[in-house]
């Protein structure tokens, strides 16, 4: 054999350290409360949060809904807004990247709206839609559409000019070049937008729910504060983080599936 088999062994310390750090994190957190360093009105221990998590599956009180109801409301709102943002934002961004007329017409309005954080729309949406689901969907839509448009636009603009010239040489029409060359070559950027938009949507959903809601994970966090129950606040935060992470993983898997044939 001309070359030896290379075996990569991880240094044992590198395996232990991450585990140790997580254990220390939860250990310190728990002991801060067990030994009364931090009063229990300010922070709940991990065990308390876990206990509430189990209880909330069956118990409606004190915030008026089951954990699953809160989660379902949040996911519903986030997804409606997210899908709408994709449906509008991606075609708009692609068209802005290729057709000068679309860019000329859409860009000034887009640039006017872009610097306003989506959260700032909340008071206006409460005027317009009340505190129901449509208002929150609108906020999430605004939040999600910006990264979609930017990434699709940049994706089309970054198309290799050699490919466009070649298509032109072979007599492709403007529309054919857009469909056959620009869109496929923009796809990796567009899929990058899916993740960014999701993170934006999820952040702003929590913001919208903190202010105007009667249901949902953000509402649960607010109720936890109003009722001075730190364990509920922490449970809400953990569930928001967890749900966001799970959705992110799902989208990542879908993206890998769909982009399997395209070199990134």
């Amino acid at each position: 054999m001309s070359f030896a088999e290379v075996k990569i062994t991880k240094e044992p310390l590198m395996v232990i350290l991450p585990i140790l750090s997580i254990v220390a994190f939860f250990g310190i957190w728990q002991s801060l409360l067990s030994f009364g360093v931090v009063p229990s009105s300010l922070l709940a221990s991990p065990l308390q949060v876990l206990k509430l998590f189990i209880a909330k599956w069956t118990q409606v009180n004190p915030d008026g809904a089951l954990l699953t109801t809160h989660m379902w409301t949040s996911i519903q709102e986030a997804f409606t807004g997210y899908i709408l943002a994709l449906l509008v934002g991606i075609p708009l961004g692609l068209a802005m990247g290729w057709f000068p007329i679309v860019e000329g017409l859409a860009r000034p309005i887009f640039e006017l709206i872009r610097p306003i954080p989506p959260i700032a729309w909340i008071p206006l949406t409460i005027f317009w839609f009340g505190i129901g689901i449509p208002g929150k969907v609108f906020i999430i839509w605004i939040a999600g559409i910006v990264p979609c448009v930017i990434n699709s636009y940049v994706g089309v603009k970054m198309t290799n000019p050699v490919l466009i010239q070649m298509a032109r040489t072979y007599g492709a029409s403007n529309w054919q070049i857009f469909i056959k060359i620009c869109i496929p070559s923009a796809l990796p950027m567009v899929f990058g937008a899916l993740q960014i938009a999701l993170a934006y949507c999820w952040t702003n959903l929590v913001g919208a729910e903190l202010l105007a809601a009667d249901n949902g994970l953000g509402f649960m966090i607010t109720m936890g504060r109003r009722l001075a129950m730190p364990d509920m606040v922490l449970l809400g935060m953990a569930m928001v983080g967890l749900t966001g992470a799970v959705i992110g993983v799902i989208i990542d898997a879908v993206e890998k599936r769909l982009l399997a044939g395209i070199r990134r």
Binding site: T203, G218, I221, R225, L234, G236, M237, A238
Partner: peptide, 12 residues
């Protein structure tokens, strides 16, 4: 965890 989710705990 979205930073906005920390608002309640920071007020506490």
């Amino acid at each position: 965890m979205p930073p906005i989710a920390w608002i309640s705990i920071s007020i506490l």
